[in-house]
Amino acid sequence: MIRRLLKLVFKILGSIVVILLLFILVVNIIPPKKDIAENPFISTTGKPMIVAHRGGKESNPENTMKAYKASVNEYEVDVLETDLWLTKDNELILMHDETITRTSDVRLFHSEAQMAKPAVREFTLEELRNFNFGYNFEKNGAFPYRNLVAQDAPNRKQILKDNDLSVVTFDEFLGEFYNDHKDLLFIVEIKNSGEEGFRAAEIINEVLGRYPDYKNRLVVGTFHDEIEAHLKANYPEILRGASTSVATQFVITSLVGMNLFDKNKFACLQIPLKAKGIDLTNKSIIKRAHRRNIAVQYWTINNEEDMKKLIKLGVDGIMTDNPELLKQVLDNM
């Protein structure tokens, strides 16, 4: 009696295992629906695209026109990456940090006692144009732009603009390259959260209306779930990058081979080499992303060996602070 019961139990368990294996097989065979019909961020050349992170901040002052012009004209990058903050008068500018202390000479004008936290949101656009955003840039132990213009120079703003070290608006950013570089791609991240982030999204949409050829060549990312939901609901035609939570979900389900039922839609998966000790340089992540027409981009890669590893892996884009180095690596492979 016990023997027959054990046989029945093993038979049931065997059937369950077979069903599970068949289910996994079917899940991996069924072609998933593509998130977008055409994705310009997927590489078609057999080599990853060069993504100039903040314009390439190892070569030039970050998020300045000087950096972006060099990336396009000297290093022949494919994608320009930047971050966006709203100013006091609701202008959308290129800036990574919430404050401007690290990248500008604001402390020459406002001491810590006068202004403990010189945030972007504390200044109007015109006020920001008075600061030198190459002031703290260091290269080979020197600060090449620290003495560019005197603090009290009457034509200070013009000198900074002429040297491409003035603050840059999102409109100026796209406008600079629009006529001669229609093939450029862009990655932008909305830094503001809540209502301010919603306003930033509105401005992005308005500016893209003035540069229509870039509308399908720009992807918007954010770390704020409410901004991603807002973009999805109100600007579905704008390409989106996966938020942190969405990217995490996609990576986990890809690693276990079960992301057929992941309904999140986005154009670019932007991930680091590792996350919480887990190696993300996994071919299955790229394979599953490509099945859904999602581009895979890794950040922020400044080491030559890491670059070579990702190139061989077949990634779509490599975000780097040193586009000059990545170009050399690609040219030599």
Score class of each variant (00 low, 15 high):
Ala201Phe: 05
Ser193Glu: 13
Arg210Ala: 13
Ala201Cys: 15
Pro212Arg: 09
Lys215Glu: 14
Ala201Lys: 02
Phe173Ala: 01
Gly197Arg: 00
Ile190Lys: 00
His181Lys: 12
Asp180Met: 10
Phe198Ser: 07
Arg199Tyr: 13
Thr169Pro: 02
Val207Ala: 06
His181Gln: 09
Arg217Glu: 11
Leu184Ser: 01
Leu208Tyr: 06
Arg199Asp: 09
Ile190Glu: 01
Gly221Ser: 14
Ser166Met: 06
Leu174Asp: 01
Arg199Ile: 15
Asn163Asp: 09
Lys215Asn: 12
Asn205Lys: 14
Asn216Cys: 12
Arg199Cys: 07
Ile187Leu: 14
Gly209Tyr: 09
Lys182Thr: 14
Thr222Gln: 08
Asn163Leu: 06
Gly197Glu: 00
Asp164Leu: 11
Leu218Gly: 05
Gly197Ser: 08
Asp180Cys: 07
Ser193Cys: 10
Gly194Asp: 15
Glu189Phe: 04
Glu189Asp: 12
Val168Asp: 00
Ser193Ile: 13
Thr169Phe: 02
Ser193Asp: 14
Arg199Ser: 10
Arg210Gln: 15
Pro212Met: 09
Ile187Arg: 12
Thr169Asp: 05
His181Asp: 07
Val188Gly: 02
Pro212Asn: 10
Val167Pro: 01
His181Leu: 06
Val207Pro: 00
Phe177Lys: 02
Asn205Pro: 08
Pro212Val: 09
Lys191Asp: 01
Ser193Tyr: 10
Gly209Trp: 09
Val168Leu: 11
Phe186Met: 06
Ile203Asn: 02
Asp183Gly: 07
Tyr211Met: 08
Asp183Tyr: 09
Glu206Asp: 15
Val207Tyr: 02
Pro212Ile: 07
Phe223Arg: 12
Leu185Asn: 00
Asp164Met: 11
Phe186Lys: 02
Glu176Ser: 10
Asp171Gly: 03
Phe198Cys: 10
Thr169Val: 05
Ile187Lys: 11
Glu196Trp: 08
Asn179Val: 11
Glu202Ser: 09
Glu189Arg: 01
Glu172Ser: 11
Leu165Met: 08
Lys182His: 12
Ala200Phe: 06
Leu165Gly: 00
Ile204Trp: 02
Leu185Cys: 02
Asn216Met: 12
Arg199Trp: 09
Leu208Phe: 06
Lys191Trp: 03
Asn179Asp: 13
Ile187Ser: 11
